[in-house]
Design a protein around this nucleic acid. Structure first.
Length: 162
DNA sequence: CTCGTGATTGACT
DNA sequence: GTCAATCACGAGC
């Protein structure tokens, strides 16, 4: 079992956001994003990578939050194995990027559409870590709407991607 | 250390 | 045919 703290995310706002997969409407690939909030949207990109998003808003809206980085808490040995890293590599290499964290957690196509209220993959409140500074910046790896600062991350956390 | 490029699937024009 | 919300690796400073 894996535990990780979410330390970096990006917002994708459907029809109002040219960089969103759902900007041009519903397709077979992005249909999960049009579910009601609480589902996991996993997409495949660049021929070799998976990235995971948490669907938000009501059904039919098409908004989601891309999980860009985690701070590994538990299960790091298994994550290291999934990533093909050696024991001497630092933990920050395990999950400091959207495709890396999916590989570390073993998330792929089969997890697309997973109900986050189930017992396989879920998000919970972090009671041990409530005080932190949140910073924002332009999103990474996109070519449109680059002026929108919709990437949010925990300031000075060493497990973010940049 | 930074920078440039190759890998390679799926959906849309 | 083109483009995409990326990463790893090798070359060169």
């Amino acid at each position: 079992v894996f535990i990780g703290r979410i330390v970096e995310v990006e917002a994708y706002l459907g029809k109002t956001d040219p960089a969103s997969h759902t900007y041009r409407g519903k397709t077979k690939r992005n249909e999960v994003m049009f579910n009601e909030g609480g589902y996991l949207y996993v997409y495949f990109t660049y021929g070799m990578h998976y990235c995971c998003n948490v669907v938000t808003e009501a059904g039919g809206i098409g908004h989601a939050v891309l999980i860009r980085a985690l701070e590994p808490i538990s299960g790091t040995d298994k994550m290291r194995k999934n990533r093909g890293l050696s024991a001497s590599d630092p933990d920050k290499l395990l999950t400091n990027g959207p495709a890396k964290l999916c590989q570390a957690l073993g998330i792929d196509k089969k997890d697309n559409g997973t109900d986050l209220l189930g017992d396989e993959i879920f998000i919970c409140d972090d009671k041990a870590h409530t005080k932190f500074a949140i910073a924002s910046s332009p999103r990474i790896g996109i070519s449109s709407a680059a002026d929108k600062k919709w990437r949010y991350f925990i300031k000075e956390n060493s497990f973010i991607s940049k």
